[in-house]
Structure formats: structure tokens, C-alpha cells
Amino acid sequence: MKKTITGAAYVVGDAIDTDQIIPAEHLVYSLSDPEERKYYGRYALSGVPKDQQGLPYGNRLFTEEDAFESAYTIVVGGSNFGCGSSREHAPFALQEAGCTAVVAESYARIFYRNAVDGGFIVPFESIERLVERVRTGDLLEIDTTLGKLANHTTGEEFLLKPLGDVAEILKAGNVFEFARQAGFMPT
């Protein structure tokens, strides 16, 4: 995990479920084939209803129609981010689009676990609700050691919750490295 993560924000609301992060019809693509996996980047967050895409504005696509990568690299969400199905394709799609971190008020557990165990994106929890404090396109900087988020567009700063138990897995890189350290996998 990098010491600082910077990028443009993409803001969504509460209970962004995995069907909104990656609609089920796209789950047919391979996650390992270099040509096919790109489609996860193209369709990341494409299930969000139009008026909720890129708050507070709406109608702002995360990934432009013909693109495979997003111009936004930090997703800001409300409560229960990633609820719904267990599809690991969800954090994978965000990563494939170029996203490196999500900052949400809270997460559904399987999404959170997948994000960490697969090492796809870093799921930070904000202390206060940021959906109304950050606008899509704002330039954000996350200090991962101090647990701070700076909004350079508005000059505001916010504290993030400590990563807690999962910090060790994030530090190891993914759950396989973590399992090797625990002695459950050959090194």
C-alpha cells in the first residue's frame, strides 16, 4: 500500500450494491484474459442510476462509453457500500478501471473482504459522511499512514478510521501472502 494515494473523486450515494458496481450481465468476461478483463473497467459502476452517477451532478459516467479506464481513481460513497452479491468482480472492476481506493461510511462485509483479500483496492472508512462534502472531480489526497483525507479542491481535511485487523493483509499484499506468513501455504 502506498503512503499517499491521490486522484480525482467520483461520488456516489448509499447502498451501492454489487449490481450497480458491475451489472450481472457483464460477469461473463474472463478476469484473467488481458483483452476480456478490460471490459470490467469499461462497465465499472455502470449500474448506478443516471441521476446518481457522479454526485452532486448526476449523469456523469465513471468510465466514458468507449473507454476502458476511468478518469476518477478514488470513489467516495455513503453507507453499506458493496452490499448484495459476493462477486469479487466488483472490487476487481473498480481496480481494472484504475481506481485505487474507496472511501465510504461503511461497507458490506463480503465486498470489504474481497477488496482486501484480493488486494484490489484499499477500502477506507470515513468517520463523517463525505458524500455531501466531496464533489465528483475534486482532487483528493489520502495519507495512508496518518489516516487523513485532504480535499485539495475545497481545502478541507477529514479523518479516516484505522484499517484495524485487515492492515496486516493489506501490508502483506493479499490473503495468499498473509496465509504464507501464517504457515498455511508453502513460501
Binding site: I110, N114, D117, G118, V175, A179, M185
Partner: peptide, 20 residues
């Protein structure tokens, strides 16, 4: 309980999983 592909792959190889 449900997990993602990564956790399932870990189980497929080791029969183990970490849980809280």
C-alpha cells in the same frame, strides 16, 4: 457464508480460511 474468488481459491488450495 459467501466469499469471493480469492478466498475460494485459498480454500481450494489449503482447505482453510480466516474468519472473524
Amino acid at each position: 457464508t459467501g466469499v469471493g474468488n480469492t478466498d475460494a481459491a485459498l480454500i481450494m488450495g489449503t482447505g482453510k480460511l480466516w474468519l472473524k
